[in-house]
């Protein structure tokens, strides 16, 4: 069991958790993720680690309510516990002095990009951050990213905050202005990452994306997270999650991520019939495991 020490919504539908996970906190490096399972009947889902504190033995994650599992997760509070949290998984981001790096975070991708941006800054890079959201209330981590960036731009689709438009509009503007860029790191929805890759391909700006395919074990055992990179099959869990954006087949990734759209909708619809009952039964089940095992499994 992994106790939740803090949980709060940082934007509508986006919740930040601080979880006690001593082993993971000691080892986490930027770019890595965890897989968690909430209760005995739960599915395993991967989530990027936003930050860790080895001294306090904690990690933090930022979760957007999308389907049943993330809604259940976002109903948990400080004092609750998560049944399984395993990690840190995946290869860490490559951190060195590249020169000028543009870090792009779309939606909750801002939370995923944050630890790498901070590490790149510490490594001496000039960090230009661009974060985007549908509207102003959904912009997250602006203050944190701003603290590790030499420049930060916020874009919103509806123009309710920052610059109106997409993160790629800002990137295009930078490229067109002739800004010197040594590396682009983009984390967010697949169409956004694909658009970034398309923008930086012609000017040959090295570009890294962090992929989020469907995953089960996260250790390289099942191959469910395979992605097509340079025409070859790669496992995002052990070979990634970061890849050269110009070699990723985003269409295959989009298609594979839609594989369970039907069951996902069914699950969510069933959840929405009796959300409170399902939340209570999940919490009761975890509490039972906790009592039976004294918190250890």
């Amino acid at each position: 069991m992994f106790p939740i020490l803090e949980a709060r919504f940082i934007a509508p539908g986006i919740r930040r958790f601080i979880i006690q996970a001593p082993r993971i906190a000691r080892k986490q490096q930027p770019g890595q993720f965890v897989i968690l399972r909430l209760y005995e009947h739960g599915e395993r889902i991967p989530l990027t680690i936003e930050s860790s504190d080895p001294a306090k033995e904690t990690i933090s994650i930022v979760v957007l309510s999308v389907g049943k599992t993330t809604r259940l997760l976002n109903s948990l509070q400080a004092g609750d516990a998560i049944l399984d949290v395993v990690g840190p998984l995946g290869k860490p981001s490559e951190i060195r002095n590249f020169g000028t790096v543009v870090v792009i975070g779309g939606g909750v991708g801002a939370a995923m990009a944050f630890p790498t941006a901070a590490a790149l800054k510490r490594a001496g890079n000039t960090v230009i951050s661009i974060i985007g959201a549908r509207s102003g209330e959904l912009v997250i981590l602006e203050r944190e990213l701003s603290a590790v960036s030499d420049a930060l731009t916020v874009t919103t689709d509806d123009g309710s905050y920052g610059e109106r438009g997409l993160v790629t509009d800002k990137l295009r503007q930078l490229i067109n202005q002739g800004a010197h860029i040594d590396l682009v790191l983009a984390v967010g929805p697949i169409p956004m990452m694909k658009a970034v890759a398309d923008l930086t391909r012609a000017p040959r700006i090295p570009t890294i994306v962090s992929l989020n395919p469907i995953m089960i074990d996260g250790t390289g055992m099942c191959g469910g997270c395979r992605v097509l990179v340079d025409g070859k099959s790669k496992f995002a869990c052990v070979d990634g999650p970061e890849f050269d954006a110009h070699q990723v087949d985003f269409d295959v990734l989009l298609q594979r991520n839609s594989m369970y759209r039907g069951p996902e909708r069914e699950s969510l619809a069933e959840f929405e019939c009796h959300p409170q009952a399902q939340i209570e039964s999940m919490r009761a089940a975890s509490a039972k495991v906790c009592v039976l095992t004294g918190g250890r499994r």
């Binding site: 009947h41 739960g42 599915e43 395993r44 049943k68 599992t69 089960i216 074990d217 055992m221 099942c222 191959g223 469910g224 298609q255 594979r256 839609s258 594989m259 369970y260 069951p263 996902e264 069914e266 699950s267 069933e270």
Partner: peptide, 27 residues
């Protein structure tokens, strides 16, 4: 979509009980 490794396919069934969806969440 529809091509599985045996490891993934069997893991979904045996470890994750996907065949009992929606009683179990993994599809």
């Amino acid at each position: 979509n529809g091509v599985y490794s045996a490891n993934e396919f069997l893991t979904r069934i045996n470890l994750m009980h996907a065949w009992q969806f929606p009683a179990y969440d993994q599809p």
